[in-house]
Design a protein around this nucleic acid. Structure first.
Lengths: 255, 255
DNA sequence: AGCTCGCCTTTCACTCAGTGAAAGGACACT
DNA sequence: AGTGTCCTTTCACTGAGTGAAAGGCGAGCT
C-alpha cells in the first residue's frame, strides 16, 4: 500500500490558504521546511504549491531561497473593500490630527477579540509604538482597543473579561472588575486612555467613530481613532478635541 | 465521451489565483458569473472555488451574494516585505512633507511598465487625485512615474517609448522624442514635474529615493516621492526642497 | 399569466491532477 | 568520513477536482 494517503478535509484550496496563512508579522520570509511545519503539510506538497504560487506571482523567492508574500497578493489585499473604504475616508482626517498634534495616529477596528490596525501615521520617533497597519493587539491594552471593547456587544465583553487577560506591561489592567468600570467610564465620557499599558513610555487617548444609523435606531461604532504620546499630563483636552473633531468628520463621510 | 475535458496548464493553484486576480480597483465586488468570465473559467468551477475561499476567510460574501476580498487576505497582503518595509520607513517622512506642504503626497515604485503607488496622504480636497495605495498608473503621465521611467534600465525605456502611449488628458506628453528629452532633463535636474498630464487641474513634482550602493557602484533608485498640487507657479522651489530633504532621509534609513 | 433572459446552484460519471513516502543532492558544521 | 538540515525530484496510485447538463430563482417584458 502506497501513494495517496491524504488526510480528509484537505482540498487544494485549503492547502494554499494554509501556506499563505503560515506567514505572519514575525515570519515574513520562510523556507520550504518552515512553511510545511507551520502549515502542517508534507514538505513536497508545500514545495509544489510554492512553485506554482511563485509562478503566479503571488509569492516571491529571495536570493537565499526563502519565500515571501509578493506584490500581486499585496495588490489584491488592497482591494478588500471593508478595510480600504474606511481607511480612505479617514485618511485626510488622520493627516489633520497628525498635523495638529505631531503624535502617532491610529485607525483601528475590532476583529473578534483583537484590535486590527487599519492605518497608522508615525509621530516623532521618541514614542515607542509597536503597531502597524495590519497588526493585531489585545483589546484591553490599547486606547483604541478599550474604545472598541467598551462598545462591543455586551456578550462578547463579558466573555472577554471572563478569560485570562494578557499583560504586555506591569501597568496593563487585567483585573476584570477594574477593567469593567473603566469601560463603563469610556462609554460615559466618550473616550479612553492608557498609560504605559501596552508599551512603557507610551500613553494613548482614543475616541469612537460613529456610523450614522442606517434607517432608525442608534448609531453604530464603526471604528476607533487614537493617538499615542509620551505623556497625557498637559494636553489631554486639546488632544481630545482634535480627535473628536476628526472622528465626527469621518463619521459624517462614511457611506 | 464526457466528464473532464480540462484545458492544459490549468492547475487548481492557477485557477485560484485567476479568481483572485479577477478583482480590480473598479471591480471589488463581483458575482459568480462575472468572476468566471473575468477569470476565464467555467462557472461551476469558480462557484466551488469561491465556496472554499469564503470558508477559508480569504473572501467575503455580502448580502447581495457578491464576493469581495476579505480581511484575511488583506492581512496577508500587508506582510509583503518589499512593499511594506519601504512604506514603513517612508511613513514619517511622508507626514513631514504633508505637514510642510498640505499637499497630496505619494510614495511609488516601478512595477514593470506601470507606477505602483505604495502610499498616499491626501491633501486638501480641492485637487483631484485618482491614485490610491495599490493603484497603478502609466509611467509617462505622473511625476513619480517620470522619475521612475527616467531611471529605469535604458532598454525598458526605449521599449516603453516605442509603444503607443496612453493619453489620459490632452496635456499628456505622448510624443516619444519630446518625452525622451524630458526624461533626460529629469536625470539631469534630479526631479520631474507634470502639469495637467494625468488629471486636469493637478500638477505634480517628484524626486527619486536613492538606496545607497550595496558594496561599491552607483546608488540605485528604489522608489519615487512626489506631491500633487493645484499649481506649481509659485512654490516650486520650496516644494522641491521639502521633497529632497525627505527623499534623502528615506534613502539613508533604507536597509 | 406565460415567456424569456440572466444568474446562481447542484448533480454526477469520468479521469487526470495532485499526492506524499522514499530517495537523491547540496551544503554546513564536527 | 560522518551527521544533521534543508531543498528537490521521482513515481505509482487514486480520489479530488472537473464541467456539461439540468434544475431553480427572480426580474423584466408582453
Amino acid at each position: 500500500m502506497s501513494g495517496n494517503v491524504s488526510t480528509p478535509g484537505a482540498s487544494v484550496v485549503s492547502r494554499v490558504l494554509a501556506v499563505l496563512y503560515a506567514f505572519d508579522n514575525g515570519h515574513r520570509r520562510l523556507g520550504v521546511t518552515d512553511l510545511a511545519r507551520r502549515a502542517d503539510l508534507p514538505v513536497p506538497t508545500v514545495h509544489r504549491l510554492l512553485r506554482e504560487l511563485v509562478a503566479g506571482e503571488a509569492l516571491t523567492r529571495d536570493a537565499e531561497g526563502r519565500y515571501a508574500i509578493g506584490r500581486r497578493l499585496w495588490d489584491v489585499g488592497m482591494l478588500a473593500p471593508e478595510q480600504t473604504e474606511l481607511q480612505q475616508v479617514a485618511s485626510p482626517f488622520l493627516s489633520d490630527i497628525h498635523a495638529a498634534t505631531r503624535a502617532t495616529v491610529h485607525l483601528a477596528v475590532r476583529d473578534g477579540r483583537e484590535v486590527l490596525y487599519l492605518d497608522r501615521l508615525s509621530g516623532r520617533a521618541s514614542v515607542p509604538v509597536v503597531s502597524r497597519a495590519g497588526s493585531r493587539l489585545p483589546l484591553h491594552a490599547t486606547g483604541v482597543g478599550k474604545v472598541l471593547l467598551a462598545h462591543a456587544p455586551a456578550e462578547l465583553r463579558d466573555d472577554y473579561l471572563a478569560a485570562e487577560l494578557r499583560r504586555p506591561t506591569v501597568h496593563t489592567i487585567i483585573h476584570p472588575e477594574r477593567l469593567r468600570r473603566q469601560l463603563a467610564a469610556v462609554r460615559r465620557e466618550g473616550y479612553a486612555t492608557t498609560e504605559d499599558e501596552m508599551t512603557l513610555g507610551a500613553c494613548s487617548i482614543a475616541v469612537p467613530i460613529l456610523r450614522r444609523a442606517s434607517a432608525d435606531g442608534v448609531p453604530e461604532v464603526a471604528a476607533a481613532l487614537g493617538i499615542v504620546v509620551p505623556t497625557l499630563k498637559r494636553e489631554r483636552t486639546r488632544l481630545l478635541a482634535a480627535l473628536q473633531v476628526a472622528a465626527r468628520g469621518i463619521g459624517r463621510s462614511l457611506p
